[in-house]
Design a protein around this nucleic acid. Structure first.
Length: 291
DNA sequence: CTTACTTCATAGGAATCAGT
DNA sequence: ACTGATTCCTATGAAGTAAG
């Protein structure tokens, strides 16, 4: 039984292009035509098929920055974090990118392997690293596997988690970036505030947004942005789900009920897994509302 | 008109290509 | 050999169509 990881191919790894494209998806949510035209302006003299569909959409989706398909594409909550960081400065945007990327990377284990590989010399040659990886990364062909690894390393380099030296033939860790990202991904500092911030943002929703239960997708976004703007903390979607699962659904003060997707209702949303079920909406009832 | 089947068009992702 | 762009493949679903 092979437990080889399948590493997706990320065609577009230039952070600048990724971010500017993401801005397009944010500027025109659920408006494919304008999203396309906006993105194509970033790639002059290229076709929709090659850049918009061939590069930008798959890349942003793999990176978890957009959700939905076809006419229902918009930024994810993680994508919103990146977009919010644009109000700050470039350093800050890279910080958000690093944290999100390191979280994704944990599924593949690059950084873990790199930490092990570089502890004696401080670096590892790309050749040696490839040898280490080929037994762990699956793919259709050697060349494809190498391209995927190279793209991923390029991303890690571009956001400051690693440093590619000597034209990329040597890899070393960017210890500052890596430790900052690890701190940013530490969930303990977020645990205490989570319930209060969740409830606060739930309460802020309009009655129509709460009718029939509030969209968990929407709350993920609001809560993450609140954590970021008001506390400087990076709460990823994964962490939101983890924390939401960790709070009791009933207490003396409130009752939380989760709603299943109805019909096609879940399309364009990332559903919330709790137990063995996937939920779309959340409804909170406070005990002071009791009749 | 409805139904059951076929064809067509499109999107997304995988793989390959081309200029430097 | 790299980097950026293009082409290829396949699933999905819309549109078309002919028989009942």
């Amino acid at each position: 039984m092979t437990d080889k990881k399948i590493l997706p191919i990320i065609k577009e790894i230039r952070i600048k292009h990724l971010i500017e494209s993401l801005v397009c998806f944010d500027k025109y949510p659920y408006d494919r035509e304008n999203q396309r035209d906006c993105v194509l302006r970033l790639y002059p003299d290229t076709s929709e098929k090659s850049t918009f569909r061939g590069m930008v959409i798959p890349s942003l989706r793999y990176l978890g920055l957009i959700i939905g398909y076809e006419d229902l594409i918009k930024p994810s909550a993680n994508g919103k974090l990146v977009l919010e960081s644009l109000n700050q400065n470039n350093t800050e945007t890279l910080r958000v990118f690093r944290a999100l990327l390191l979280e994704l990377d944990d599924n593949i284990g690059f950084s873990t392997m790199l930490i092990e590989s570089t502890e004696t010399q401080g670096f590892i040659s790309k050749e040696d690293f490839f040898k280490k990886l080929t037994s762990k990364i699956g793919g259709p062909s050697k060349r494809q596997i190498e391209e995927r690894i190279n793209k991923w390393l390029g991303l890690l380099d571009g956001c400051g988690l690693i440093v590619l030296k000597n034209k990329g033939t040597y890899i070393s860790l960017n210890n500052n970036g890596l430790s900052e990202a690890k701190r940013d991904l530490d969930v303990t500092s977020k645990r205490d505030n989570f319930r209060a911030i969740l409830f606060k943002n739930y309460d802020l929703l309009s009655p129509s947004e709460k009718a029939g239960g509030a969209d968990i997708t929407k709350l993920r976004e609001l809560v993450a942005v609140d954590f970021y703007n008001n506390h400087g903390l990076i709460l990823t979607e994964y962490q939101f789900d983890e924390l939401l699962r960790s709070i009791p659904l009933t207490s003396n003060n409130y009752i939380i009920s989760l709603g299943l997707p109805i019909g096609l209702g879940g399309i364009g949303d990332r559903l919330f897994k709790h137990g063995n079920e996937y939920y779309k909406t959340i409804y909170i009832k406070y005990s002071k509302d009791k009749i």
